[in-house]
Design a protein around this nucleic acid. Structure first.
Length: 190
DNA sequence: TAAAGACGCGACAAAATCTC
DNA sequence: GAGATTTTGTCGCGTCTTTA
């Protein structure tokens, strides 16, 4: 089995911090906030692989571009963001060091581009969702308002017809009384 | 026993949000 | 609009454990 497995280099937190150019506690903080799984030695000390370090380097890059940790976390969780995978594959393919580096750099650049696209997509989706929600609320509100107006109109019409009916009945009553009087007068004269 | 690392907790500054 | 409050992203420090 020797030779078929490539021994992965492990970095201590102090080494990783130097490479990423941040303080050790920052790495610990990012690890907690971004929920990045970091390996532990037998003693419980953190150890960092090249892959971990590259992720942290990209996190730093994105932070410098103005992204907040929440956004970076969302992106990390929604992507299979593992730049080192390509490097390992490249090693297996026995490529030369230069070719490997070039390929990894290109791959990382490509992944970073995908990263950015994804962030833009998320922002776009949030805006779209908000618009749809607003539209839905507006439609619901308008439907309620229309119902209310129709209901009020029906009530007004009912009231109008009721009044008309009352007026007609009143007229009929007056007319009937007049007719009775007229009849009584005729009978009296006879 | 000093050095290195883990862990927890509080402090701090800047930005965002709320309240009057 | 200005001051108060909250949130975010660190930062500092003390304590404990392990190892050489």
């Amino acid at each position: 089995m020797e030779g078929s497995m490539v021994e992965e280099h492990r970095y201590l937190i102090s080494e990783a911090a130097k490479i990423v150019a941040v303080e050790a506690h920052v790495l610990r903080y990012w690890e907690d906030e971004l929920e990045i799984p970091i390996g532990r030695t037998e003693l419980g000390h953190r150890y960092y692989t090249r892959e971990n370090i590259e992720i942290f380097q990209n996190v730093k890059k994105l932070k410098e571009e103005g992204l907040q940790l929440k956004a970076i976390k969302a992106v990390l969780q929604s992507t299979n963001y593992r730049p080192e995978e390509d490097a390992r594959k490249a090693q297996q393919e026995q490529m030369t060091t230069e070719q490997t580096s070039l390929k990894v750099m290109q791959s990382n650049a490509e992944k970073l581009r995908q990263f950015k696209e994804l962030v833009e997509e998320i922002v776009e989706k949030v805006v779209k969702d908000n618009n749809e929600e607003l539209q839905q609320r507006l439609e619901e509100s308008m439907a309620k308002e229309t119902d209310y107006l129709l209901h009020m109109q029906e009530k007004r019409e009912e009231e109008r017809f009721r009044r008309l009916d009352e007026i007609i009945r009143a007229h009929q009553k007056v007319a009937a009384t007049k007719e009775k009087r007229r009849f009584r007068d005729i009978l009296r004269r006879k």
